[in-house]
Amino acid sequence: MQSPGALEISRRDLLAASAATVTVASAHSLGHAQTKATTAPQSTKVTFTVNGEGRELQLDNRTTLLDALREHLHLTGTKKGCDHGQCGACTVLIDGRRVNACLTLAVMHEGDSITTLEGLGQPENLHPMQAAFVKHDGFQCGYCTPGQICSSVAMLEEIKANIPSHVTVDLTAPAEITPAEIRERMSGNICRCGAYSNIVEAITEVAGRKA
């Protein structure tokens, strides 16, 4: 929903080059252009609940939901793996749906209910999915794990709600829980340690218990 009017043209002389030497601006600044500063405030108050607890924050508009959780609320279970929606480590549940917390602004979540890994269970009182990940060794370094677990909990709900996937054979039939479905639906959560085979077993066990 962007309009071309906002695309700015910046100074091309930054790239004036000779054969042996070249002068360019540093990282980022090539894209810079002069824009009229707005006088509107650049921070906003936002109120939402996190793991059932009401929170009110006055935030720099630029603060992502991920950084609001990690740097302002110190809920560091949610991880920053790429900050660009390319890995899934920051997956949280917003009103029950899984999203990448890195690609949404905190101020866009007025009134929302957010669940992070910390809201699912504690070391002494594990959520069934957390327990299954421990049992099946569905992690190694543990950094993608919060995203994997949040994602898998929401993913099973998506199947229950009859949301199809890329590998669903018949779009008009109810979605099923199969290893192929789990793998496709979990593909937005990268695990570089390569625990995928074990993660699928953990999820399958929880799904079976639920069914």
């Binding site: 990690r70 110190h74 809920l75 560091t76 279970g77 949610t78 991880k79 920053k80 992070t116 890994l117 910390e118 699912l120 269970g121 504690q122 070391p123 002494e124 594990l126 957390q130 327990a131 990940f133 421990v134 049992k135 060794d137 992690f139 543990g142 950094y143 794990t145 919060p146 677990i149």
Partner: peptide, 21 residues
């Protein structure tokens, strides 16, 4: 034997470098 750090890693209680507060 399942990892002894498993309950920490699966609940967000394992603290990584940027998270010391």
């Amino acid at each position: 034997i399942p990892r002894i750090d498993g309950p920490l890693k699966t609940t967000g209680k394992a603290i990584y470098a940027y998270e010391w507060h």
